[in-house]
Design a protein around this nucleic acid. Sequence first.
DNA 1: TTAAACTTTCAGAAATTACTGAAACTTCAG
DNA 2: CTGAAGTTTCAGTAATTTCTGAAAGTTTAA
Lengths: 181, 181
Amino acid sequence: MMMTPKIESFVMHCGEMGSKWGFNRTVGQMYGLLIINEQALSAIEISETLNISRGNVSMGIKELQSWRLVQVQHKPKDRKEYYLPAGSIWEMAIRVFEERQKREVDPTLSLLRDNLLNEPANEQEQFAQGKMREIHDLLETITHWAGELQTMNPDKLNTLMKLGAGVSKIIDMKDRFLKSG
Amino acid sequence: MMMTPKIESFVMHCGEMGSKWGFNRTVGQMYGLLIINEQALSAIEISETLNISRGNVSMGIKELQSWRLVQVQHKPKDRKEYYLPAGSIWEMAIRVFEERQKREVDPTLSLLRDNLLNEPANEQEQFAQGKMREIHDLLETITHWAGELQTMNPDKLNTLMKLGAGVSKIIDMKDRFLKSG
DNA sequence: TTAAACTTTCAGAAATTACTGAAACTTCAG
DNA sequence: CTGAAGTTTCAGTAATTTCTGAAAGTTTAA
């Protein structure tokens, strides 16, 4: 599997971005390669194309599976496993979003909840708990909202996004409508 | 500046989470400490409370400033700088969101745009460009939407979030209203 | 000016994270 | 069974990131 320069630049960029998106460089590259490639690739092809060890590919695939971002394919008369990106670009975005939520927000929410169960012992803790409550409530609102958005189908979500700030006008309209009705 | 166990657990948690949120452990701890503390803190107080070197505090503050998350305060008759979190919890969330956008999404968008200007050289590149376009369009929609949401005031944003998937019903209502009108 | 009080910088050390490659494991056809 | 074709694991090493502390820089009061 030879990469053309353009494809290589995309794959390497996914590597750089990988760490910002929550995985490491080689996992990013692997995922970029799978997205950009029409055919499913075997572990050994990935390893050779990206010049990384076979063991690293195995760990990377595991990581991508934990994000539900790849799927395995088998070919008849062939014992190898072939890997493909799981789902559409939209689904990929939603999964990354969901997983990050799980890894970044949920643990904080649970720490805050625990902490808020205790009575503050002094003025300093009183202030601290006030802040923790603010953060807790904000995160909970966001989590709840994100959950709801994910129940919408991609089309509707797309409409909503394209609408942008316009949604604000629609909410106003609803208010007027309900008042006058 | 002594931390009570509850406050310490929060601050240490911010440290763990720091890396997931885009900075490193000590920067996370520093920010947690500033949020949870009613009074502004000097660099030396931060350094002593968290047991980290004075130089590290200086670098951490610089990092937090690059995220626009801290603000400096001066006290009369005192040459030290004192640090405070910049803005409300809402503003903090919006800033983290904006900065991550800048760091994680914008570079990818620009790479994709460049790549899409070239004609595909073969069938493999044709497929690749198709995928790149999909990703590009999706990221652009999200970026645009995020930008618009940020122009809304917190109250309205809150209303919208609390509405959750209900927003979908309102969009339907608008459609019906426009058709019948 | 000077010097005290503070901040920033940065080379090198420490800590963390990622990667390799060889060994162990699994699966399956014969 | 056996062994060939594959996958996974993991100890050790390499690469990267973070942190320290001392030196350089800055600011201000006298």
